[in-house]
Design a protein around this nucleic acid. Structure first.
Lengths: 209, 209
DNA sequence: GTCTATATGCAGATAGAC
DNA sequence: GTCTATCTGCATATAGAC
């Protein structure tokens, strides 16, 4: 509706601009233009650019984290859990396609703060870390440490978003429709890729005993 | 040696700073300081910041591309080719750990130019695209399109570098030595992960003989 | 070629009228 | 609350002495 409060309009506009240009590249003027107001009013609602940025960044992030925690703590079988995580990330990012790059920038700009925020939100990888070891011990999946598995999965999820401008040009003749279809396929491709990679050779191992 | 030409010193310094801060975040003053000269001299050798940036960025990139092309055009079996690519990227990045983020930023800042540069250098994915289809048709690997496979592999390679500040904190108690060890393991972990994921049932049976 | 000093422009932030 | 006008500082870039 057009009855959005100005503060809300600013946040919306700031999301667009910050996400496109990053904290350094964004201009308060551009945010003001996009919100249909002037710079002074920005500073009325948000004291500084830094403050506005944090508000936007952690606002977006806090939409993702609760869903992840639920999955982490859930009781599904391990491989289903991976599938759920991929799905969660993927649907979230199709709504926020520039988020991965946004997060990556912030990871490198102010990691301390980001790390603290995640802890505050109750996101703790040790929730899952032990799970992987357990699955391996039970012979359900091939041996891999949690950090490696984590890096693999997140990397596969995130790459097509951060690399889009190049990938779309080089691999899809710069056709955005084709690329959106490609992105939609990722969820199933990644899960089956991971499942296949983790599939234990239990049969072989057992017969060797 | 102290006998480096100043121009060379500038490029070295600019690499450090640009890579750490990105094009937007970098300051000419900081580059000058790191090179042990003053700002005016920067502009004597490089007309503008933009020019210096391009020189640095494409200078670094052009060290990576030839190696990739050799692999693309080589005659090794397909899975060995993947291993070679992972190794190539990986050794390159252990020398340039901030490069992935650097490239990602530029992909989004000026994709047209980057895409053109790659073409100029003769890097063309269609070299490999057909290869994947062929391997699938021969039943050597499980079905997957090239863009998906490409995104998977590059994502896995790149993720630990762009996410380092966070990953190191969250997964390795902020111990840089441990993280470097983790990075060293990536090469073998990724190749075996990919090989396992791509292994066709056919191959699987044969390898068990 | 290398420096100091300065010009130019722009971005973040504020003052103050309404 | 919302605006116009302005301050302040900083970053790129240039002028000009040596």
């Amino acid at each position: 509706m057009g009855s959005d409060s100005i503060k809300e309009k600013i946040v919306q506009a700031a999301q667009q601009v910050f996400i496109r240009k990053g904290m350094d590249g964004a201009r308060m003027q551009e945010i003001a233009d996009e919100a249909g107001i002037n710079k002074a009013l920005l500073h009325y609602y948000f004291h500084s650019k830094e403050q506005l940025f944090k508000e936007v960044f952690y606002g977006i992030l806090s939409q993702l984290i609760p869903g992840l925690i639920v999955i982490f703590k859930g009781s599904e079988p391990f491989l289903d859990k991976i599938e759920a995580i991929v799905t969660e990330y993927d649907t979230y990012m199709s709504k926020n396609p520039f988020l991965p790059q946004f997060v990556i920038r912030e990871i490198n700009r102010d990691p301390e703060q980001l790390s603290g925020f995640m802890s505050d939100q109750g996101l703790d990888f040790s929730l899952v870390e032990g799970l992987v070891e357990k699955e391996i011990a039970m012979g359900n999946i091939r041996p891999i440490t949690f950090p490696h598995l984590f890096a693999n999965v997140i990397g596969m999820i995130v790459m097509p978003y951060v690399g889009r401008p190049l990938f779309q040009r080089k691999l899809f003749r710069n056709d955005p429709v084709k690329y959106d279809m490609f992105l939609q396929e990722r969820k199933t491709v990644i899960t089956s890729f991971v499942k296949q990679a983790l599939k234990s050779e239990q049969l072989r191992v057992e017969s060797e005993k």
